[in-house]
Design a binder for these strands. Structure first.
Lengths: 259, 259
DNA sequence: GCGGGTGGTTTCATATAATGAAACAAAATC
DNA sequence: GATTTTGTTTCATTATATGAAACCACCCGC
């Protein structure tokens, strides 16, 4: 049923271990990792050693725990600069953020999930959870729905099945059906709303970024606290948002196909 | 002379390839990587395949190029949350940034280099190069010198040799000797200055963050454009800076040794 | 449309590295 | 001080990575 990962080689297994460590969200001891690892002690031990040598993990002598290494941050920074939309989109979303005076987020779709690659002007009052590298569900966020609405049908099928439909708030979609109906509407409107579906008190308006060939390459949202703007209030930003999304799409396309 | 990497196993080699791709700073074709890779075609090919499978790399069909994958950003976000000083330091440096109204940076030392793990309030006028995950030289930055001045002698020896002493500006230190003399002064003052040594027009004042055991765990700097504050002008922030650094150190220590 | 170069992919016997059971060591815990 | 838990090392076996070479496909000039 699931992807037949058929873990490609030693490297794949090592990265699996890395993910395992990451998934704890805190420093872990050897035995923690061992507990839910398919590998025998010795094998896992050597993986952890290797990863630590490579600075992908960091070992704390004092506590005997492993945590993620800083090499990852270096690599991710490089990834951000070269492989994400962020560098291209920065000037545009910066202008947008200044114009509307609200927080602006830039996200890409990754394996059915939303990955935030940039955020600007989060007012300090309400710190949304979004930060660069942070992932969020697609089915209950503005950027997520904006992207889902415009992906190719095949991908949409897959993506819909990857959603958990966990009920974050009262407004959260509980099924693919209900989500699908909204996606239809989004395709008509051109923008998506998050009406406190992921986080109580936060809503947003979002637009997809499309390449010239029509492929979804990301999304931009303007997010606000409900006590400042409700969904209808955010509607006033629609034109500016769409214009920004178009500009980013244009520029991204011309970068990818230089002539 | 250099580190005897003695590449640990297949995983090490694969990560080496990953670094190679990262080092280009742009999407690369197979033959680009092959050109300066010690590995034969077939081997390199399989590495790239594996890494792409694993989403550590991304392959663009259109252009036939590899770039860093999105999985790295997810991992790095997790690393940032669990392994860096940033989450602990955030509230403190946020308060400092608000108080002084200038950009505040948080950095850690990584293999003789400065790694920025957080930055706040970069005014949009002068965008310093610093961003999360970005690395910079230690010998010519405020945070770098603040940390070097307080590391253990052994580590300092190693670190001093890892510096390039590239002359970024007229004020850049050109040798370990001249740097060492300044470090002596920094140990007395408790704070370090960057007087346009890395970037023309930017200077900063920085303080190390020390654990209770006296180990350097990071540094904080306040950076400004020279036309707003010269080094003497930044001196007014010394007390606030030192206080913040102390608070962060205290809190970090108590997290690491909970009782 | 034809030759030939460049850039990328696959094959396969061989060498190398990963594997994991089990023994071992070192702390914690009783 | 005995016992359990947790972490580390050994070593014969097995699986995996390796890389030379063959192969394929596409582009480019003619």
């Amino acid at each position: 049923m699931n992807k037949v990962v058929q873990s490609d080689g030693t490297v794949g297994k090592a990265l699996e271990v890395l993910d395992a460590v990451a998934s704890y969200g805190r420093p872990v001891r050897f035995s923690d990792v061992l507990a839910d690892s398919p590998y025998p002690k010795a094998t896992l031990y050597r993986f952890l050693q290797t990863l630590t040598n490579q600075k992908m993990l960091e070992y704390d002598d004092q506590t005997g725990t492993y945590s993620l290494g800083i090499r990852l941050m270096r690599l991710a920074h490089a990834a951000w600069r070269t492989a994400s939309l962020a560098p291209i989109a920065r000037p545009h979303i910066e202008a947008l953020a200044t114009q509307v005076g609200e927080a602006v987020h830039l996200a890409q779709l990754d394996d059915g999930q939303v990955l935030f690659v940039d955020k600007l002007r989060a007012t300090d009052r309400f710190e949304t959870l979004a930060q660069v590298g942070k992932v969020a569900p697609a089915y209950c966020t503005g950027v997520g729905k904006a992207m889902l609405a415009f992906v190719a049908p095949k991908r949409l099928q897959i993506a819909l099945q990857q959603q958990s439909y966990f009920q974050y708030t009262k407004a959260t979609h509980g099924s693919a059906d209900s989500l699908n109906r909204e996606l239809d509407q989004i395709r008509i409107d051109g923008v998506a709303f998050d009406r406190e579906e992921h986080e109580q008190g936060i809503n947003s308006i979002a637009a997809p970024i499309l390449s010239h060939s029509g492929r979804v390459i990301g999304a931009i949202s303007i997010a606000s606290a409900t006590n400042r703007f409700d969904a209808d209030g955010l509607l006033q930003f629609k034109d500016a948002l769409l214009e920004t999304a178009r500009n980013v799409g244009d520029e991204a396309t011309s970068w990818q196909f230089p002539s």
